[in-house]
Nucleic acid binder design. Structure first.
Lengths: 255, 255
DNA sequence: CAGTGGTCTAGACCACCAA
DNA sequence: TGGTGGTCTAGACCACTGC
C-alpha cells in the first residue's frame, strides 16, 4: 500500500522524499483551531467535550486530549476540571492584562485611569503598513492615550489598528469601556489577540512626551513596541508604549 | 470530618481529610528532580530511558512520560528522539545564551568580546544578601565586566554570587572561558541556573557607566536586574546589567 | 538490527462541579 | 447523580538514531 498514513502529500510524484509526517493529534489541533478562527465557538464559551470531539473526528479521547493540551499551553483555550474547556478571552481571565508586564515596585496596583488623547482614521505610513502587513496608504485607526496609576501618569501609548477590522472605533467607546482594551476588541470587533512580540529599549523623553508623562525632557523612559497577532499569526495591532519606570518595572520570567 | 483540606498541617491529628492529593506523575517528577539535584546524572548526560525509570519506580511508561514532559517543558531536560533524554545544560544547547534577550536590531550577532574589570571577594550588603538569601556581611564574589559586540561596548554587568558555592572564581578563569558564563558555572562549580526573574527599567547613565559604555553621561540605558535560581528555587546569582539599546533591543514574546 | 522517544488506542477509575 | 476534565495503565505500532 505504499505510503498513506501521512495524511499529507496529495498526489506527490514518485518519491515523496519527506512525507511531512504529521501526527494525528496535530491534525486534530489544526481542525479545532479552524473552528476557533471561524468563530464556531466564541470567546468565553465552552467547546465540545473531549468525548464529543473524539467522536466527531473519529479518534480516541487521548488524541483529542493531546491536541487540547497544546492549545491550552498556548493560552488559546482554558481547561476547567468538572466544567469543560473554554475559549480563552481577555475579558475576565484569571489574570487580567495578560500582556501588560509593568508592575509596581511594591504593593498592589489600583485600577488604571485612562485618558484618550486621540482616536482617528489615518493613512498608514511605510513602517506601520509593513508591521501590520498592509500597504502604505491603507486606512488605519490611530489611538493615543495615557494611563495613570494613582495620580501618576505612567504609560503613554500610540496604537495602530487595521482600518478594515476596526471600522467605527471611537474615543468615546475606548473611554467608556472598563477592563483590558483587548476585551473591547473581542466584544466589539471580534478580534482576539493571541500572541505578541515586544521590542524594548531605553529612550530619552522628547518634549511632548515629557509633558504628557510629567517628567523632565530627556528623562529615561522604557520604550515598548508591541506587535500583537490573532490566529494564524496575522498581525492586528501595533503599539508603541512609553513607560515611566521610576516606581514601576517591567517584569519578565526566564526559563 | 471538620476542616483541613488545605494541604498543609504536617501532622494533623486523626483525620488526614485531604491527603493533599498529588498525582503519581507529580511524585515521579519529584523523584527525578531529586536525582537531578543530587547530581546522579550530570548536565549533558542521558538520564535512564523511560522504560528503565518506569521499572525503577514501578509505574507505567506513560506515567514516567508525563513526568518527563513537564521537566522538558521547564527546560530542565531535553528529549531527543531515538537517542534519549538528556540533562539540560547551558554549554552547547541549541540556543546558547538562553537568558540573554538582547538582540541586534538587524542582522546576525557576532561573538561577544568580554572584558573583566573586576572579580573579587567582598561582604554582601543588605540588598545583595536579601536577594541571595544570605546574611548581611556574608562573603560574596563580585564581578564586573563589559561585553562588546562588533567594537561597540554594549553591556556593563555587575554580578554577585554566593561566596560559598563560588569559592576560587578568578578573573582569569572568566576571561579564558569561551561561551556562556553559565556554562562555566556548571563545569567549574556544579551550579546549574534553571530559571530567572528580571526587572527592567530605563535609567540615565552615570558618569562611570557612561565612560565604560562610551555614551554620554545621562544617556538612556536599559537596566536589567536578574535573579537566577538553581533547583528548588534557591537564588544563586544576582546580576545588574546596563544595556545600550541604540542598535540592539530586548526581545520578548508574550502569549 | 535493537533501543530510544513519539503516537495512538481502549478502558478503568478519580476529582471536581452542578443540578 | 451524571458529566467534565484528570490520571493511570497496558499494549501496539511508528519514527529516528546508531551500531
Amino acid at each position: 500500500m505504499a505510503s498513506s498514513h501521512t495524511a499529507d502529500s496529495p498526489a506527490a510524484a514518485d518519491p515523496p522524499a519527506t512525507p511531512a509526517f504529521s501526527p494525528l493529534y496535530q491534525q486534530i489541533k489544526g481542525l479545532i483551531l479552524q473552528s476557533l478562527e471561524t468563530g464556531e465557538w466564541k470567546p468565553g464559551e465552552a467547546i465540545p467535550s473531549e468525548m464529543e470531539l473524539a467522536a466527531r473526528f473519529r479518534v480516541s479521547q487521548g488524541t483529542v486530549r493531546k491536541a487540547i493540551d497544546e492549545l491550552a499551553a498556548e493560552n488559546l483555550v482554558v481547561r476547567r476540571q468538572g466544567k469543560g474547556t473554554f475559549v480563552a478571552t481577555h475579558t475576565e481571565q484569571q489574570v487580567r492584562y495578560r500582556f501588560l508586564k509593568l508592575v509596581p515596585d511594591s504593593g498592589e496596583e489600583g485600577p488604571a485611569q485612562r485618558r484618550i488623547l486621540d482616536c482617528r482614521r489615518v493613512r498608514a505610513n511605510a513602517d506601520i503598513a509593513r508591521a501590520l502587513a498592509l500597504r502604505t496608504g491603507d486606512a488605519v485607526m490611530q489611538v493615543r492615550r495615557v494611563l495613570t496609576f494613582g495620580a501618576v501618569p505612567t504609560i503613554l501609548e500610540d496604537i495602530w489598528l487595521p482600518g478594515n477590522a476596526f471600522k467605527g472605533l471611537t474615543a468615546e467607546q475606548l473611554a467608556a469601556h472598563q477592563g483590558p482594551t483587548y476585551a473591547l476588541f473581542e466584544l466589539e470587533f471580534g478580534v482576539r489577540m493571541v500572541r505578541a512580540e515586544e521590542k524594548i529599549r531605553a529612550v530619552a523623553a522628547e518634549t511632548q512626551q515629557a509633558g504628557l508623562l510629567a517628567v523632565a525632557e530627556g528623562a529615561p523612559l522604557l520604550s515598548v513596541e508591541r506587535l500583537s497577532f490573532t490566529y494564524n499569526d496575522v498581525p492586528m495591532e501595533l503599539r508603541r508604549g512609553l513607560y515611566r519606570t521610576d516606581s514601576h518595572h517591567y517584569r519578565n520570567e526566564l526559563s
